[in-house]
Write a protein that binds this DNA or RNA. Structure first.
Lengths: 114, 114
DNA sequence: CATTCATTTCAACAGTCATTGAACAATTGA
DNA sequence: TCAATTGTTCAATGACTGTTGAAATGAATG
């Protein structure tokens, strides 16, 4: 059995988030909301070298998890909410076909977050 | 700024899921529900060599994403729902402090899944 | 007690990834 | 235009990861 493209795509996104620095970048951008944050401020907050951050941002961007817009000489990064919602949905999809108790168990985690 | 242990833990879990084979293993186990599935059947369904699967199962288990119980000469693997719920929660936590629209945007993804 | 079955462990290899410093754009303001 | 600011790209290095085949473990069966 081969990997489906959907598997590869979702795995790439999860893998992008599966790095301590990138996870902190992502969570920092989540708190920034749709307005996002320039790369320099992000580097300062997360505490990582600019060039290193730049490559991590590229990974997140290629996974579709964040978007970038230029603004003067800065570049503003922000999360792409549709992508993360789809990724979470894919992660737990099909769990309720035969086992509704699985999804019920997931709800507290979501409620705790929001 | 250093990585917090919570970041490292969550990143390790997401990284464990960030591999096509492991993601398929996990999703297959999700559909199996709390009863789980023996390693051999899992290897057949996912289409991967048994020794290879074994190492992937170890990664998932060390991340706390799955649990194992022996049964006769088989070993039954099943998802740990608390862990995945906590991981998803961590991923999007703090998004509603300042930006409730972020969490609202996430809901459709969850509803699509469940 | 020897055999079979289910699965794991081990060693080795190729490939990928993260980090660093140095060099390279692009934009702004004097 | 010159210089400062903001970020990115590049090359090199060391570390980690995934896969494979062979050997080993441990539980059940006859």
């Amino acid at each position: 059995m081969n990997d489906s493209p959907a598997d590869d795509e979702a795995a790439a996104r999860l893998s992008a988030l599966g790095h301590p620095t990138r996870l902190r970048v992502f969570r920092t951008l989540i708190t920034a909301g749709p307005d996002g944050m320039p790369a320099g401020e992000l580097a300062a907050r997360v505490g990582v070298a600019k060039n290193n951050l730049s490559s991590h941002l590229n990974v997140l961007r290629q996974g579709g998890l964040i978007v970038m817009r230029p603004s003067g000489r800065s570049r503003i990064y922000a999360v792409d909410l549709d992508t993360i919602a789809a990724t979470i949905g894919y992660l737990v999809s099909d769990c309720c076909q035969g086992h509704p108790e699985v999804c019920e168990a997931l709800s507290p985690g979501m409620e705790r977050a929001c």
